[in-house]
């Protein structure tokens, strides 16, 4: 059975009026980004990117270093608000939410795996994984049990009681994947989640993430340089110099 939280039961769920009719994504899309532009000082990272992700779809974002993949992923996940364009994630226009509302949306309905330093250094693996549930007021017992369950599914049960500083890169990534999946997100964003691992270890973690997402029928947007990872997606979106250069449906 897939462990899964029920966000609807939780206190503080964003009220329905956040879902104004104009904000709704077309049926089936979990993410709809339009004309997204972003620059860091004078470096233009995105020059008007469109990205639509259907429910249950696995999309790989690829392209040369510096082409804007991370910026796009951060904008899509609500980690940054782009300077122009709109991002509608799970029916919410992200620019119209407050910072706190975006944080809540990310914690409850979105899973995020980044490349480095994402585990809380002061917490053991199991507490890191349980954290999003604990922050949402779940009883500690149940949260830890669910966290352990996910650590096991991710092949990281051996480090359940270990602090991040004492884990290998591969172990830390497995824990990060478990933490991204523990809340039962309907969409997962992963940025180079295996960038720090050797090929085989990286592919194992990736295989696990893709399988878990597919099993739940969730969506995944994954930034990768690894062709074999891109080949596991349903669609590849290739960025070059801040714009979509090519799209390939692989399914």
């Amino acid at each position: 059975m897939t462990p899964q939280s029920t966000p609807g039961d939780l206190p503080g769920t964003p009220p329905a009026d956040h879902l104004a009719a104009a904000d709704r994504v077309p049926a089936g899309a979990v993410l709809e980004a339009h004309g997204v532009q972003h620059a860091y000082r004078r470096t233009v990272a995105l020059r008007g990117v469109d990205l639509r992700v259907e429910a249950g779809e696995v999309v790989a974002v690829t392209g040369p270093s510096g082409c804007g993949k991370s910026t796009l992923l951060h904008a899509a996940a609500g980690l940054l608000v782009p300077q122009a364009g709109t991002v509608t994630l799970l029916g919410r226009d992200l620019a119209r939410l407050t910072e706190d509302e975006r944080a809540l949306l990310r914690r409850r309905e979105v899973g995020i795996v980044l490349q480095f330093g994402q585990l809380v250094p002061e917490l053991t693996a199991v507490d890191n994984v349980a954290l999003p549930l604990l922050l949402d007021g779940h009883p500690a017992d149940g949260a830890r049990r669910l966290a352990l369950d996910w650590l096991q599914r991710c092949g990281a049960e051996d480090v359940a009681a270990t602090m991040p500083s004492d884990m290998s890169g591969g172990e830390a990534q497995r824990v990060a994947v478990a933490r991204a999946l523990v809340t039962g997100p309907s969409v997962v964003f992963a940025d180079e989640p295996t960038g720090s691992l050797d090929t085989l270890a990286g592919r194992q973690v990736l295989g696990l993430l893709v399988a878990a997402v597919r099993e739940r029928g969730a969506s995944l947007v994954i930034v990768t340089h690894d062709n074999t990872v891109a080949a596991r997606s349903d669609r590849e979106v290739r960025l070059v110099d801040g714009a979509v250069a090519a799209e390939a449906v692989l399914r």
Binding site: N227, A230, A231, E236, R238, A246, A248, V249, L250
Partner: peptide, 12 residues
């Protein structure tokens, strides 16, 4: 781009 898509499809 077309060759890349063909290769990725085959890989998949």
């Amino acid at each position: 781009a077309r060759q890349r898509a063909a290769h990725l499809r085959r890989m998949r």
